[in-house]
């Protein structure tokens, strides 16, 4: 049974709902823009801290974090939709009408990606106006956005797995809190070397730290540990894909 028609249908419907419902569309679009403004604007002096060495500047430094954050939360917001569909019973229609149910997860995932693409475009445009410096070449920029796509998928697959297991929108905090904490326990404001104490230890163990450093390196034209960052991103997405598809099986068994 073909998976594509199901994925196409689910993605179309999810995007249609998001794009025509302002209360769903605007928060996921405006929050990253707001965070970028608040961080890049309010904390710009942090770049003058001794030992802070990022040639493209603080705006670019924060842009990479906010881009990855918007990618992760673009996925999580789509997971809210999964939970809502189960809570309202609409998911039952999807389960019933989809010959190949794996296409349901794929469809939601495509919607998460498309939804984030809109946010990323807006964010990039605003950042360019605000003075984003791109030191890297086209391949580097592509590398950054590819990392963000993987983060988007990981965020979506995590929340999709939760949504399909708990099947209620009340699972929202469980979807977003771990993502929020994982993102913010990385070197958000300053490079890893400038973190001290417990936050340094936590950040060192946090895979997002390496993805973030590589992403920032792409825009500086000197990306560190690219293979490690992609390995972590692909690995996380793969493990979480397993988590999401097992969530689907869980939902199928529950009826």
């Amino acid at each position: 049974m073909r998976i594509w028609p199901v994925a196409q249908g689910v993605a179309w419907r999810t995007l249609k709902i998001v794009l025509t419902t302002p209360s769903l569309f605007f928060p996921s679009l405006l929050f990253p823009l707001f965070f970028f403004t608040a961080f890049a604007g309010g904390l710009s002096q942090v770049s003058h801290v001794p030992g802070f060495n990022y040639p493209p500047g603080y705006t670019t430094f924060q842009f990479v974090f906010v881009l990855l954050q918007s990618a992760a939360f673009g996925g999580v917001f789509t997971g809210f939709g999964v939970a809502r569909d189960f809570e309202t019973g609409f998911a039952r229609r999807l389960l019933l009408a989809s010959p190949n149910r794996s296409g349901i997860v794929l469809g939601y995932g495509l919607a998460a990606l498309a939804r984030w693409a809109i946010t990323a475009t807006m964010l990039t445009m605003i950042a360019l106006i605000a003075g984003l410096n791109i030191g890297g070449n086209g391949v580097d920029v592509f590398g950054l956005y590819l990392l963000a796509v993987l983060v988007n998928m990981a965020g979506f697959l995590w929340s999709c797995g939760i949504g399909m297991r708990l099947r209620t929108i009340q699972a929202g905090p469980l979807m977003q809190m771990p993502v929020f904490l994982t993102l913010f326990f990385a070197p958000v404001y300053v490079p890893l070397e400038l973190l001290q104490g417990w936050i340094h230890a936590v950040a060192r163990a946090n895979p997002v730290t390496y993805v973030l450093a590589t992403g920032r390196g792409f825009l500086a034209g000197d990306p560190p540990h690219v293979a490690l960052a992609f390995g972590l991103a692909v690995g996380s997405a793969a493990v979480l894909a397993l988590w999401a598809f097992r969530g689907l099986r869980n939902a199928e068994a529950a009826g």
Partner: peptide
């Protein structure tokens, strides 16, 4: 939030 026609279109796509 979907129209009747949207529902039918979705169902047709899924199938």
């Amino acid at each position: 939030l979907l129209t009747g026609r949207d529902h039918l279109r979705l169902q047709a796509t899924l199938q």
